[in-house]
């Protein structure tokens, strides 16, 4: 049985939704794949896996820790979606300083009551810049799209399960 882990870092879970959009084909994969850590299983720690799918970029220290854990445990690591590949929509905050972002969200924004910047120790520390996952660890394959179409997940996994290099056809390559 192939072991597969997935996670969503600074993403919106849209890539995971698109993965599930394979519909009945998903059932075919479930027969050949055992899910390890994933929002699908709600397992919180990762074991040794054959394939790891990473959605989302890096916006805080927890994202970075999870990504490193995935790299250490997954033989093949795949960056899934625009945010993992170029930072995506969350990286649009890179145009502003961290202070500006926090002030807009928690101090000066419209309709804010009791303005304060959250400082609970359980909250992960934000990185100064949102960045793509290939800046922190080696990535084996990339699946572009926002989200990648269900068919792209299918092509990727079919190839990886056969031990082949995935080749995305032109019609499944898009960045939005």
């Amino acid at each position: 049985m192939i072991r597969l882990a997935t996670c969503s870092l600074a993403g919106c879970f849209g890539c995971h939704m698109s993965f599930l959009d394979m519909d009945e084909k998903f059932l075919g994969f479930v027969e050949r794949v055992e899910f390890d850590r994933s929002p699908f299983t709600d397992i919180k720690s990762i074991g040794k896996c054959d394939i790891g799918l990473v959605e989302g970029g890096l916006c805080n220290e927890e994202n970075l820790a999870v990504l490193k854990e995935f790299r250490e445990n997954c033989a093949i690591l795949v960056a899934v979606g625009a945010c993992a590949i170029n930072g995506g929509i969350p990286a649009m905050r890179n145009h502003f300083s961290m202070d500006e972002c926090l002030a807009e969200a928690y101090l000066d924004g419209i309709g804010i009551e009791n303005p304060q910047i959250p400082s609970d120790p359980e909250l992960p520390v934000l990185l100064q810049k949102v960045c793509p996952v290939h800046e922190a660890v080696r990535i084996d394959y990339f699946l572009p799209g926002c989200p990648p179409p269900a068919g792209a997940f299918e092509v990727l996994l079919e190839a990886l399960l056969k031990g082949e290099k995935p080749e995305l056809p032109r019609k499944l390559i898009h960045y939005d």
Partner: peptide
Amino acid sequence: HYCPACEKSGSCRLQKAAYDEGMLDLHYRP
């Protein structure tokens, strides 16, 4: 180039050129 947030997406020649060349990742640091 955040394609999902760009109105030119789908009609952008830079995007099309990258699709045609099969560009899947940035490789470099943005």
